[in-house]
Design a protein around this nucleic acid. Structure first.
Lengths: 197, 197, 197, 197
DNA sequence: ATTTAATCGAGACGGTACGTCTCGTCTTCAA
DNA sequence: TTGAAGACGAGACGTACCGTCTCGATTAAAT
């Protein structure tokens, strides 16, 4: 019984990049539903097997294509000017801008959607993208708690969710536009809710 | 240009029910990815065309299958005992229970996911399910504002999102369990944020 | 057990004609393969059931559409001027013209083809069209035998086939053009073969 | 404009044989009308696309299935014992036997019928099967003409048709049984018609 | 002239097969 | 030995027709 693990030292970096680029291009052009392994292979000038050898699904390809190359779980850090409100507004406004970026919209929504039904992908997304971000918030909130800026008894994790949940909800449901003003209002309300008692 | 709209007065209610039932059964058994129109037709003892005649996609079938028959947009109403906190906790706990119901899990996640890529479906979901619920919250918040229980200047819509956003986020990301306790905490924090100033 | 024989006294002649006309038109436009009962019904402005009620197959419709209205089995008669050669050449040349008529080509070939696989149709064709014609030849040959113009011991039936077989073959195989000259040559050769010994 | 011609060097001979065998079996079992590409694929244990890749229609599959493997256009030759009558009777009797062979009946009739409406198939049939046979007759007749056994001015092609036309006619119309005796009679009459003058 | 029962146009229905598309695996050949 | 190319078995897609089955609305014969 041969496990057939491919030898990654001999992997063609050229093909890898071509595949990831093709995937991003295609998802932007025709959407995730019409994105197929065959189309990626054709566009990348690559055999289908070269994709199947290294990725388990088209979602996995797209996921890797979306990851900025040099991203590191530990590298995510929120600003800490001492002014919690200002810091959070800065960060949430940036998040709003990112969610509104039309180039990232298709792949991001595709991955979010797919992760509902693909637990593997969900785990990867959580671990590599979501949690590092949320943990950065958690650390910032802990600092704020130590500084007495917010109630010390509140679980910082829940504090984070109070903040990002509403944004995420609006982005997902497309019910109302996602603006800087909205981000500011959410920060205001949340901080009032978290205020020391 | 012939639109070829089928005559709905001659529609077979028998087949309609069989199709919706089959869809629900199958999505529970094998998940949304493996749900096919052919399988639905076979299970329902129905020709494929009968599905294509009345629904544009398998997502649309599943959507209708999930809608409780007698649901009416106007019929959704939140309790109003005068005690805002108690009312919200009651409702959010019920929501938590629904999201944790394993029978509804597969179809709900499937529809949520699909609506990311299918704008038609997204619109239907928003209009028929999401908005009626959110508007009920909005009405309850307005009552509370008139009663001076929460700040009158805050947009009730944002208030709603402060409440349901975190729940939705946890359910979607599966990062932590969705409990009654969590719902209560979210209500506490949100109401503190919304308190009159 | 009700045989459900439709009552032909109440039959709509209007619909009958519309169906037969539509069938002929459609087979001329798009060929037999693309001729469908649904298309005939649509073109004729008739319900499908009205076709199924009165004909067993699209071949049967086409067959009836091809039958000249007042044709009678007994009415077919060959000319008899006393000059056998001239009479046969007249008739075969007429047959050649008919086979070359482009308006009849599609339906005739369709029925010929279909009758290879549809024994019902084959029987009808033989009985209503083919045999009356061949029997007229047989009668003409018998007269010629009595007049001592051809060998009396030869089966007239085989004589007929010697004559029409080659024409039929050329028409079917489309190997060479079917001309008056060809008909004449066949008559010459056949009559030489049938000459009294 | 890409023609998408498949690479025949990589074709699976195994699948090709399985498909042809399945086609012959099925046409024998249920007739041509009920022969479907899906059934052939299923019986052959092959994907449908493998059939569509290499053949344009079920008729084309059946045609190839009927062609004896090593058949060559030049290899068809009639016997030449010097005795024209005997040689022709031998060959026509063999043809009669072949046409009466129940195993070949269904596919042969199907192909004959189909070639009335499918010009591609008609051309293939003529070129690969019919003409080689007829040309062999033509060569035999030319020899006979040089030997002064039949009239030198008669087009050998027409001579052939005088011979095979009647047989073909009887086989097609199923009006009377096709026997050795019939073949002999046709040869007798035809040769008398072709005799030197 | 009214009744009444069948045919009529229409088209939804349960099915079958179509021809296409994409999947994930397997094989061949060139670098 | 890898990777491009692509044939393969598999099977779902959405469409086209099949032949059967209701539906009212004529429509023509029998009352």
């Amino acid at each position: 019984m041969t496990a057939k693990t491919p030898d990654s030292t001999r992997r063609s970096e050229r093909s890898r990049r071509a595949i990831l680029d093709a995937a991003l291009e295609l998802v932007g052009e025709s959407g995730y539903q019409r994105l197929t392994i065959e189309a990626i292979a054709a566009r990348a000038g690559v055999g289908k097997q070269t994709i199947y050898r290294w990725w388990p699904s088209k979602a996995a390809v797209l996921f890797e294509a979306c990851l900025p190359e040099g991203t590191d779980a530990e590298s995510v850090e929120l600003p800490d000017t001492g002014d919690l409100e200002a810091d959070l507004k800065t960060v949430l406004r940036a998040t709003v801008d990112e969610l509104n970026n039309p180039r990232l919209d298709a792949p991001t929504r595709a991955l979010t959607a797919e992760s509902q039904n693909d637990l593997q992908l969900a785990r990867a997304l959580t671990e590599k993208v979501l949690e590092p971000q949320l943990q950065a918030y958690v650390r910032r909130f802990r600092t704020a708690q130590q500084a007495g800026q917010i109630d010390a008894r509140t679980d910082p994790r829940i504090a984070v969710e109070l903040l990002v949940g509403p944004l995420f909800h609006r982005w997902q449901t497309r019910t109302f536009p996602l603006t800087h003003e909205y981000a500011d209002t959410v920060v205001d309300l949340a901080l009032r809710g978290l205020a020391p008692r």
